[in-house]
Design a protein around this nucleic acid. Structure first.
Lengths: 201, 201
DNA sequence: CTTGAGAATCTAGCACTGCTAGCGACTAGA
DNA sequence: TCTAGTCGCTAGCAGTGCTAGATTCTCAAG
């Protein structure tokens, strides 16, 4: 085998891998778009395959199953949420806590399908001691950073979990039309004030 | 038609209606049991029909579809939750708020399938201006009653919504293994304290 | 007691789901 | 040019929710 032939082979292999990675991303994007346009019920392997213009089995050469595709969308979504929360850090005229709460709930409201994949559908993303995806760490880290200034003597991580739970509860119950649509801002203000109040004076 | 014949006819009709009502309840109970034992994924129309020892179409003579069965289970579940919260009212040694929070989360943890039907799966139970089932009113009413003593000058219903959201968030995130299993009690205490703190001194 | 109308129930099937075995075409290296 | 081996496709399986149409059963009237 000549050196040029070997080089050519490697190059072709590289191109193949690149194309494969692109198609991998194409599937994730198509799934997210389909879900955002028509809901997760519309995301069937057949429709997804049609959207990416391949046959169904191709999906299974990239992902172990439909769940794995949803999981990939969810993890990307965590990255988006983390960036949104980071942007909110620098919003003027309100506390970090308030800004984070509003940014979080705005994300949940504007991208309900994405939010659903991330936190409502149980897609067993590793969360405990396992290898937690960086996107998740980032998102939770942003919440910790928002809570930190008001934690006072209270345990930071526990307080963040409670704050997050309240936001998550508001997000899902609002989406399910279980809370009065007006009073949305009042709930946010009340929550933020409650979390702030424990600060040591 | 003789008078006795008419009476007999009415009686038979009554018996029929009674048997029909019993079977209606049998279906709901079977669905709940199946869900609690093996999860909602296992609740298929076929397995449910087998469990009640009728064919599938019988289910559809009682309910418009599978969703309606889940909804019936969910509404009954709200009744159960309401009673649990009511029981917690009279627990000694802790505030009403604390007792309600613990009772709510214990219910969610001990009957995850039932909780899922009630508040996670979106089964569009009427909630807004429509005819809201009494069971739902009762359950939310119990939460309002628990929050009322500490509301102070804050809007009672809004504060209850926030409190409920936090409980719901903790319940679902705990179930999805998103929160640290130890620290459960710490989260409850922190939440209760935060909600209490706003009370006018 | 027989009979026939009407209700109650079941069988069988549809269109869909996630997923996969196995075939055929195409590619790349000898 | 020939031959491995990869690649993607067709076709199919077992399952889903749901329903049309046949069948069985019930019960009052004759």
């Amino acid at each position: 085998m000549s050196s040029s032939a070997r080089f050519s082979g490697v190059s072709i292999q590289n191109r193949r891998e690149r194309e494969r990675a692109e198609r991998h991303q194409l599937i994730i994007d198509a799934a997210r778009e389909l879900a955002e346009q028509e809901g997760w019920d519309a995301v069937t392997t057949r429709r997804l395959a049609e959207k990416v213009e391949y046959s169904q089995p191709v999906l299974y050469s990239h992902f172990k199953g439909k769940d794995a595709i949803v999981r990939a969308v969810a993890i990307e979504g965590c990255g988006v949420l983390a960036r949104e929360l980071r942007k909110a850090r620098s919003s003027q005229g309100k506390s970090r806590l308030q800004a984070a709460a509003e940014a979080y709930l705005e994300f949940a409201e504007k991208r309900p399908a994405l939010y659903d994949a991330m936190f409502v559908q149980q897609v067993d993303i590793p969360w405990g001691t396992d290898e937690v995806p960086q996107e998740l760490r980032d998102a939770f880290g942003e919440l910790v950073a928002a809570v930190e200034p008001v934690a006072g003597e209270r345990d930071l991580e526990t307080l963040t979990e409670v704050f997050w739970s309240a936001l998550h509860g508001i997000a899902t119950l609002t989406h399910g039309k279980r809370l009065r649509p007006d009073h949305h801002q009042a709930r946010i203000d009340l929550l933020v004030r409650s979390v702030q109040l424990g600060t040591a004076p």
